[in-house]
Amino acid sequence: MIEAYANRYTYVLVAALVAIGLYILIASQNLVKKIIGLSIFQTGIFLFFITAAFVEGGSSPVIDGEGLYASPLPQVIVLTAIVVGVALTAVALALIVRIYSEYGTLDEETLREVRADE
């Protein structure tokens, strides 16, 4: 059991990242921190794909020869996903800037109170 995890420690890492990201996303009151959590959550998923790309004893379909090879497909996927993620973060931050300039707060609780007062 332990050995299985020792060989696959990256998965443990990935799971930890996903969990941490989700926790921040839900628990944090601060909007920027929420977005940070979201990014960490997504990064965990990206690393999961990267990790999965490595198959023991895998061989390259293109080049002959010895060495460690990883499947190129997940790398490409993650590259795309990262681009999407960056765009999302940008949009989110833009929205936060707008909210901040209006209400002067990044705190979700305060924000709710301010809006309730209006």
Partner: peptide, 23 residues
């Protein structure tokens, strides 16, 4: 600016949903 707040909420939940789909 209400719409920005709603949009951010949508973004956070929607992105989480899409990420879960990706998993």
């Amino acid at each position: 600016v209400e719409s920005a707040v709603a949009s951010l909420k949508y973004l956070v939940v929607g992105t989480t949903g899409a990420s879960i789909y990706l998993i």
